[in-house]
């Protein structure tokens, strides 16, 4: 019989479905945050939470199936998130400078 390679204990003990449920819970918390908060910065943080839940799921699948491609995708998601946060926070700073508030209920001017 072939000796199986060293498998981390967590992968032997925890089924993949636990990670599915954990990352779904994080994603739903992010959705609720986006829908309930009015502060633009907190909405941004909730979006980061959703991105991170997807990262966790990609890493879990990639580790369980020992396929490094999923982790490379997480790398790209992190790069895109960094660029998104830089531009988004610049937009928020600009909005604050012009309207003195970052309450999104105040930003209805595009509504027809």
């Amino acid at each position: 019989m072939i000796q199986p390679p060293a498998i981390p204990e967590i992968i032997q003990l925890i089924p993949l479905k636990s990670y599915l449920i954990l990352s779904t819970a994080l994603f739903v918390i992010g959705i609720i945050g986006v829908l309930t908060r009015r502060n633009a910065i907190v909405i941004f943080m909730s979006v980061e939470l959703m991105l991170n839940s997807v990262n966790l799921l990609l890493i879990a699948f990639s580790s369980y199936r020992s396929d490094p491609t999923g982790q490379v995708f997480v790398f790209f998601i992190m790069a895109v998130a960094a660029a998104e946060v830089a531009v988004g926070l610049a937009i928020i700073v600009m909005i604050y400078r012009n309207t003195r508030t970052i309450d999104i209920n105040f930003l209805k001017k595009l509504k027809g």
């Binding site: 072939i2 390679p5 199936r65 020992s66 490094p68």
Partner: peptide
Amino acid sequence: QVGTYNPYEFKSQTGMVESLGMVL
């Protein structure tokens, strides 16, 4: 059915810099 790990083809070096760098 989400599947699980394959104990005979499992590679413990997947998340290390070397294998990620190769793919990247």
